[in-house]
Simulated assay, not measured.
Amino acid sequence: MTDNNKAQRQSDRRQFFRTMSGRPAVRRPPWTADDLTQRCTGCTDCLDACPERVLVRGAGGYPEIRFDDDGCSLCGECAEVCQAGVFDTRREAFPWHAQLNQRCLALAQIHCQSCQDACEWRAIHFPPALGRPPQPHIDSDACRGCGACLAVCPTDAITLVDHGQRPAGGRQ
């Protein structure tokens, strides 16, 4: 077995056990592929270049993206400084999009539109409604998966769902 295959199997195994323990999957930086752990040198240049500070050093020293305080502006500065060629800005930035769950205040008839205000891509909007607060709508085709809506949601009512998969729950 080659070193790359062995490293990929170890990474897959870690992801499996993270999921089984109820923890969210590791989210990698934009424009990166599944082989990030084989190609990344762990230099932290991408982390240092990120103006939003959403890139953090994760397990094994590899970059992860976390949307606890902010979203990714997709500025591309991480890709520009990477000497290892981990980033490919020709590919889709993220393989996920935002999805609402039942903790959404607007769905509980409480006026809240913080996710819409944070969404630079205008993927979240609240069509007007008579006699009740407007209900949110997420256009998954317009959503870039940047996580800005996750960072501002007061009830963690938004999850990131991989394209073609069901929601996994909780802040990711």
Rank of each mutant, 00 (worst) to 15 (best):
D3W: 00
N5Q: 13
K6F: 01
R9P: 00
D12S: 15
R13T: 10
R14G: 02
F16E: 07
T19R: 14
M20C: 11
M20W: 06
S21E: 07
R23V: 04
R27P: 01
R28G: 01
P29T: 06
P29A: 10
P30C: 12
W31L: 05
A33P: 00
A33S: 14
A33N: 08
D34M: 07
D34H: 01
T37Y: 01
R39V: 06
T41N: 12
T44P: 02
A49T: 03
C50H: 03
C50V: 08
P51M: 10
P51R: 09
E52M: 13
E52Q: 15
V54P: 04
L55R: 09
V56T: 09
R57M: 11
A59G: 09
G60F: 11
G60I: 13
Y62F: 15
P63N: 10
E64L: 12
I65C: 06
R66Q: 12
D69A: 15
D70E: 12
G71A: 10
C72A: 08
C72R: 05
S73F: 03
C75K: 14
G76I: 10
E77H: 08
A79H: 08
C82E: 06
Q83V: 12
Q83M: 12
A84Y: 06
A84F: 05
G85N: 10
F87C: 05
D88W: 06
R91C: 11
E92W: 03
A93I: 07
A98M: 09
L100D: 00
N101M: 05
L105D: 02
A106D: 02
Q109H: 15
I110T: 15
H111N: 15
C112R: 10
C112M: 11
Q113T: 14
Q113E: 14
C115H: 04
C115F: 05
Q116M: 15
D117W: 09
D117F: 12
D117I: 12
C119D: 03
C119N: 07
E120V: 13
R122F: 05
I124T: 12
H125R: 14
P127Q: 09
P128K: 13
A129C: 12
R132K: 11
R132P: 00
Q135F: 04
I138A: 11
I138Y: 02
S140W: 02
S140E: 14
G145Y: 01
C146N: 02
G147L: 11
A151C: 11
P154Y: 04
T155H: 07
T155Q: 14
T159Y: 00
D162G: 09
D162C: 10
P167L: 07
G169P: 00
G170C: 02
G170H: 02
R171W: 01
Q172F: 02
Q172W: 00
